[in-house]
Design a protein around this nucleic acid. Structure first.
Length: 447
DNA sequence: ATGTTC
């Protein structure tokens, strides 16, 4: 286990641990570290960690985890971020590379036709007010058993069974609901993608997966719905700072006491956005099943796992050797599944991994968290300026890219992201995780 | 990330 420990001092309420080797540590921005110290200074915060690839974010850095005491702590909309339950789902098909390779182009254009993608794009589906309310409050169990999008066996394969409890639409603005209702069943834009992959290396045979098998990865979140909820509550938190006599170390970490009316409202609204995102990935799964079965009838597609990158949840962890009930905020970080696996996606056109914990002590010290994927190396604007289309195409190699909009292609180029193998190496070196399976992209539908 | 800049 390898981490840097910053002892509690000044306004901090707890230590900060940053999982990194010396090399990695030297690459971390000062501003990202400062954000961790700020997080540790919020009332009732009892644990803050940074994962090896942290970089500056809004309030809390991407790759940051902040735990507050459920009794005395805060809940911070900024620490969850704007894309609530942005996350990744992995599907496994009963197909091998040779079964699909000749039909890949047809399947990709089928997916492009079926799945709305891009900024501000709306769904092809319509939901009544009541259906929408039940989907976001009850999550996958309702969507699957009552609306028919998938099979009940899919539910158990998702983090929290695809349903964050306590979701309640009453604290969600009309504006958020109106945006959300039109967007359930869409891919989105930016780094969101849908990718067909082949399993090209199995490090551990307990994974149940075989080399040459086909998988599909879906990366999307809660679209305008979660974004609006985040914006609404961040604004409220900034305004209420006085009421609760909070002197936030930075505005962007504005928070509520967990047990305040506003704090409870945010949790219930955040849970709605989390359920929306689980449902969104489930509906896209339904489209994937339809399209692949259209071209290759009889194909069985299972959900391998589905996890969140940006969320806060009530969990039990050890603090100073004692079990404590915490509210764990993860931003650009994921929790290991009950089976002890996590998905670590690469950028568009690069490898992804399934990982498992390497060192149990590190796992506990990190509140069972690992990195969420290859972070950005260049900002969006910087990527557009610095990269040429030719370099970008070359970096994609054999990977076929279908873009919904052909917009901002360079923003999401593999060249604008860190090398995923470096992220995996850093997880190994810090003892957080090791690879179980490597997935190689064949074709990607870019959002 | 996002009907694209508190």
């Amino acid at each position: 286990m390898k981490y840097y420990r910053f002892k509690q001092e000044g306004r901090m309420n707890c230590d900060v641990r940053v999982f990194a080797t010396r090399d990695l540590y030297n690459q971390i921005e000062k501003t990202a570290l400062k954000q961790l110290f700020n997080a540790a200074s919020l009332p009732g915060v009892v644990g803050v960690i940074g994962l090896p690839d942290i970089h500056q974010g809004y309030g809390l850095p991407i790759g940051g985890v902040m735990c507050s005491s459920l009794k005395k702590g805060v809940i911070s909309p900024g620490a969850v971020g704007f894309d609530i339950n942005c996350g990744v789902r992995l599907l496994v098909a009963g197909l091998r590379l040779e079964d699909i390779i000749d039909k890949l182009d047809d399947i990709m254009s089928g997916l492009k036709n079926e799945i709305p993608a891009g900024l501000g794009v709306n769904s092809t589906l319509t939901f009544t007010d009541q259906q929408f309310e039940r989907v976001v409050e009850e999550g996958l169990p309702f969507l699957i058993t009552r609306l028919g999008y998938g099979q009940t066996i899919d539910i158990a394969a998702c983090e929290e069974n695809g349903h964050l409890k306590g979701a309640d639409l009453t604290g969600v603005s009309k504006k958020a609901i109106n945006r959300g209702k039109k967007q359930l069943g869409t891919l989105g834009s930016g780094n969101h993608f849908l990718e067909i992959q082949v399993i090209d290396k199995v490090y551990n045979h307990n994974s149940g997966l075989e080399e040459g098998q086909i998988s599909i990865m879906i990366h999307t979140g809660s679209r305008g719905f979660g974004h609006q909820i985040a914006e609404d509550y961040i604004n409220i938190a900034k305004k209420r700072a006085k009421k609760y006599n909070f002197d936030f170390p930075t505005k962007n970490l504005a928070s509520f006491p967990i047990n305040s009316p506003e704090g409870e409202d945010y949790y219930r609204a955040m849970a709605c956005a989390a359920n929306f995102a689980f449902a969104n990935r489930q509906i896209l799964t339904h489209f994937v099943r339809q399209v692949i079965n259209h071209f290759i009838p009889g194909t069985f597609i299972t959900v391998y796992y589905d996890l969140a990158h940006n969320i806060c949840k009530k969990e039990i962890h050890q603090i100073n050797g004692k079990k404590k009930a915490l509210l764990v905020h993860r931003k650009g970080a994921t929790k290991l599944s009950p089976d002890g696996i996590a998905l670590v996606p690469g950028s568009m056109g690069t490898d992804s991994y399934i990982v498992r914990p390497k060192n149990q002590e590190a796992l506990k010290a990190a509140f069972e968290s690992v990195s969420h994927g290859a972070g950005r190396k260049m900002g969006r604007r910087q990527a557009r300026k610095k990269l040429s289309y030719r370099e970008h195409l070359k970096s994609l190699g054999e990977v076929r890219v279908t873009s919904a909009t052909n917009d901002n292609l360079l923003d999401e180029s593999p060249l604008a992201y860190k090398d995923i193998s470096e992220v995996i190496r850093s997880l190994k070196e810090t003892g957080l995780a090791e690879p179980v399976v490597r997935l190689k992209p064949l074709a990607v539908l870019k959002g």
